[in-house]
Each structure stands twice: as structure tokens, then as C-alpha cells.
Amino acid sequence: MAMPENVSAPAPILRLENIGKTLGGKRILSSVTMEVDKGQLKVLIGPSGAGKSTLLQCINHLIPPDEGHIYLEGRVVDAARRSELYAFRQQVGMIFQDFNLFDHLDALNNVSIALRKVRGMNRKAAAERAMAELERVGLANRATLYPAQLSGGQKQRVAIARALAMDPKVMLLDEPTSALDPELVGEVLAVIRDLARGGMTMVMATHQMDFARALAHEILFMERGSIIERGSPAELLAPGSGTRTADFCSRLTDLCEECS
């Protein structure tokens, strides 16, 4: 059962093994297994209530999974040990649907506070790093504004800068554009696209199918707490492929066309 640590193929950077979660007597996730290699973008899609968000939050134990194991760079995460859990979370960036910026801090301090409090960097170095990250998401000129003064798209970009400042090995994105007005979706997707092209490892739940089609290395289709289909966008979304994924996407597209 024990695998040698240094097998020839590089170990996946993140591995989930039989993750299960029951909340209030309802089975939310059942034995979800997946691997993410370095530099890959995995996209989770599926109807609402499928467990995408719960799965992402189980990965960094914001919702502790009931069963299964999580491995980062081949090492199992022992969440019972607080310091190990905190160290693990620092390496896994998370982007939330509703941004969750710290309301009492301006954009710069939203990005720098974890560097100071968690990383123990001094104020000056943390501010410099935070500024660099804000520049990366195109918001250097908004550094002194508070969340209440930013648009939704700007808030989400600050949230991305905040996660990037911690030098995460993996980023988890939980429907990062779902709470945005349609005209603001593009600026956030552009930032995420740049990250993907820059080789950031990411797991992203989204309904932006064009984005997934263009950039995902693998699409994972979830329904009722399980991954029921997985494959490259080309495989799953090919016309006439008859997959649940293609069916779901065409219904999503129909819906959009009705709206417009």
C-alpha cells in the first residue's frame, strides 16, 4: 500500500482521496477522488447543489471532510494538528464567490495583513509585496480604497491579489464571477486567464463555459456529490459526444440566449 516517495512521474501537487461529507443527514459529497498536477487548471461544473462549493471548502478544511485524505505534494494533511493545518492553508489560496474582503481594511492592507500576521513580515516589506500583487491585477491605483468603495470586479481582483501574495501552490476558485454584473466578469476572467497561462495550479468551479473550454486541462462534471464525468474539454464538449457535460452546457447556453 505504501508507495515509494520518489516515483519517476512527478507526484500530483494536490490529491484528494475518497473525500466524503454529510451535512445535516444529507450526503453532500461521496468519495470524490481527483489529482491536480502542477500548472493544471481543473474546472468543476455541474448544477447548483452538486457539491462543487463544498468540495472546494473541504480541500482546505474550511468544511472538514468526514472521510478521505488530502495530499499536498505527496504529503497527507493532518488537520488535527492546528499548526500543520494553518501551514497547509497558507499554501492553498482561496477565492470566494462573494469576495470576502476584510471590510475594515483598504485594498493594500487586505493584501498585506496575512503577510504581516501570518507570515510575520514587517510592515514595509508586506506593503511592498502587496503593492506588487495589486499591480499584477491592475489595481495599484486603488490601493487606498476600502471594499465599500470598489466595484465587484475590483473587489474580486483584490481578493485574488490577497491570495497570490501568500505564494500559494494551488488556488481554489469558487465561482469567482457568479456574483458579478455581466460587464465586470471579463476583467476578473482576464486575471485568472493570465494566472493560468503563467502556470498557476488551479481548481475552479464556474459556469463560464467558454472560459473552461478555452483554458481547462480537465473538466470535472459533478452531480449529487460525485464526479460523474471527467475529461478534456474537447472530449466532453464535442458536438454529439452525448455526455452529461455537453448536455448541461447546451442547456446553459440556451438559457443565456433566451436572456439576451
Binding site: 471548502q57 474550511l62 494553518y86 492553508r89 492553498v92 482561496m94 481578493a159 501568500m166
Partner: peptide, 25 residues
């Protein structure tokens, strides 16, 4: 609640979350 999740996701301990995020607000 989301702000607490965000702090925890960044690696804040419970005490750090309280002192840096919750109490100032």
C-alpha cells in the same frame, strides 16, 4: 461569516482572526 472563512483560508489562527479581523470591525 465569509470574512472569517477568508481569514482562515489565508492561514490565520482563530485568535489571529479574532484580533485582526473580527474585533476591529
Amino acid at each position: 461569516q465569509g470574512q472569517l472563512s477568508a481569514a482562515q483560508a489565508l492561514g490565520f489562527s482563530t485568535m489571529q482572526t479574532l484580533m485582526s479581523i473580527v474585533v476591529p470591525q
